[in-house]
Design a protein around this nucleic acid. Structure first.
Lengths: 341, 341
DNA sequence: AAAGAATATGTTATCGGTAACATAGTGTCA
DNA sequence: TGACACTATGTTACCGATAACATATTCTTT
């Protein structure tokens, strides 16, 4: 691996002269420039970013920590981040915590060691321990998707409360009255917000009695399966499900199938997050879709602004609206149909 | 951001002493150790990996370049790589080329700049230009999934030829005789291998006339859609499709639906790579599944061996067998059934 | 033609950490 | 009690690049 010193020796100049050629800075005679460029080509010299970063105290690298790399919602965010960052000459380090606050803390420590310039974080829970490390170091932080309790922090997210509210309104319009909510972990803000939207829509419809309709679980297929099982045991049974993310939806649909229930004839179904069209033979869910790519993009732009000391004073919150697709999974409530069961 | 010098000053010792405490090396009195640890805690000191790596000429970082980050096959490989690498104290940088050799070359250049210790590569095409950069630098390289033409290189892949062969045999057993192959790009070795397996099975069955049955396209939904359209225009029409990956399968199934054809009644269907069970409400494809996680794991182990100068002399090839699932997408050929159009 | 600007290149110090060597006190053994 | 090992700590140089400053030549300008 040849260094700037090797190039300098070969070209018969000082290291500084080589540096000037490489970075196009300062004055260089045409003759010297050619000699140096020739030496660079001959040696296949590629500058060492480590050394440069050490000197600059800037690595041109940001990191993105998500909680579930298998979820297309997060991989789409990741693409938005990657595209936007590399446009501006930044590299991105991706990390996956699997919803574990301990992993999160460990990653943050390693990333600080690696001298990242800034961090985009989907927090595993709403507690703030792990980010305190960053704040001591004055490394800019932008939260994605989920928030933290306590002091306000720059964040980009989708309006979960509104999304859930609209989905429930859709079900109410179809005549449903017993609408179960299969939510995520209680200490994750998106789950809480979606519950709030569900609750508001029902309250406005004069349906305040929610006993047995609200279930908390993990954002996973197993979580959805488990919550759906619990929900189906209640009596009277709900006629519709609202699930708080795509994996919960898949788990819940499977549980319904196991109970011999058809969607939407026996149970209507609406969810947050769609499944990726690329993998769907036959899209099916009525869903509130979060603008994942755009969330990644906006968060990155905000973070890069912060790196240059720009952007609004105080914490900046960007809240994007969900989009809705209405498909076969939601239909009229049984007792709203002329004559059935 | 406090440095080792800050800690040293606060503890009233030299930088070297702090370094010894942090790395548990050399001799340290209990008394000094406590003072230094206290100073570290007070300042929230976290060592700078850049500086350390510069000195060591080792970053404890490897990179994984894949061609399509949206494909669960590659994200599963990525998980295998990440888990295995971090077990051994290595970080992983993920890169996505979107099947572009130019992007690939650019990433490799940046990764060399970042002084990665080794590279896992899913090449975008079988040409070798981009990896020559690495070989000048003696950075160990392990190929994943696909191979390169020319000199042999360490590689880990699944037996594509065998997988395709067995899938076609399955169709032959079901009575199919006109079996179309919807393959990937002609200059990608996995696509070529799958074509070879398909060809061998047909030849062994005495079905040498392949005119109009072989189609090349991209490994994408659009590619599959396009190839399926072409295949459906041939006459006599094929009774079964073999698709070379999961996205091609999705595109092809959609094209069939547009033509009003049912699977498997009107067209049987087998494919390489399944869709992720996590996102499938109702798994459906008969598929040859590649052991993606294990491929990532094995490739990482081989690469880490190479980093330490271990492993077999000469290029090492690890070829893992595919697994098969037989599901509803494949059924008897129409003319093999008692009475039907 | 002298003075200052513009051009071209080199030298030194530095980023944060650590290997290699140096120094000094303590303990042990013949 | 002197020699040598062991323990504990510090000093110097270096990894590869670059900012800041220094030096030297050429070109303008009055």
């Amino acid at each position: 691996m040849s260094t700037i010193a090797d190039v300098a020796k070969r070209a018969g100049v000082s290291k500084m002269t080589v540096s000037r050629v490489v970075n196009n800075s300062g004055y260089i005679s045409q003759d010297t420039r050619s000699r140096v460029e020739e030496a660079i080509a001959e040696l296949g010299y590629i500058p060492n970013t480590l050394a440069r970063s050490l000197r600059f105290k800037q690595t041109q690298t940001i990191a993105l920590i998500v909680t579930d790399i298998t979820n297309p919602f997060f991989t789409t965010i990741a693409r938005g981040v990657e595209d936007t960052a590399s446009e501006q000459g930044f590299s991105v380090i991706f990390c996956n915590t699997d919803e574990s606050p301990e992993e999160e803390q460990e990653y943050i420590r390693v990333l600080i060691q690696k001298q990242i310039d800034g961090l985009l974080l989907v927090p595993a829970c709403s507690r703030t321990e792990s980010v305190s490390l960053l704040q001591d170091k004055t490394i800019p932080l932008v939260l994605l998707d989920r928030q933290l309790t306590g002091q306000p922090i720059d964040s980009v997210r989708c309006d979960s409360e509104l999304g859930a509210y609209c989905l429930v309104r859709h079900l109410l319009d179809l005549g449903h009255r017993r609408i179960a909510m299969l939510s995520g972990p209680a200490d994750v803000t998106t789950a809480a917000d979606r519950v709030a939207g569900w609750r508001r829509a029902l309250r406005e419809a004069g349906l305040g009695a929610l006993a047995g309709l609200l279930h908390y679980g993990t954002y996973s297929v197993d979580g959805g399966h488990e919550m759906a099982r619990r929900a189906l045991e209640t009596s009277p049974r709900p006629t519709a499900f609202l699930t708080a993310n795509n994996f919960i939806a898949v788990g819940a649909v499977r549980a319904l199938a196991e109970h011999g229930l058809r969607v939407p004839e026996d149970m209507s179904f609406v969810t947050f997050d769609d499944l990726p069209p690329m993998m769907m033979i036959d899209p099916f869910f009525t869903a509130a879709m979060q603008p994942a790519y755009e969330m990644g993009r906006q968060a990155t732009l905000l973070l890069l602004d912060r790196l240059e000391g720009r952007g609004p004073a105080g914490a900046h919150e960007i809240i994007l609206p969900p989009e809705f697709v209405f498909r076969r999974s939601s239909g009229p409530a049984p007792d709203a149909r002329p004559s059935e069961g």
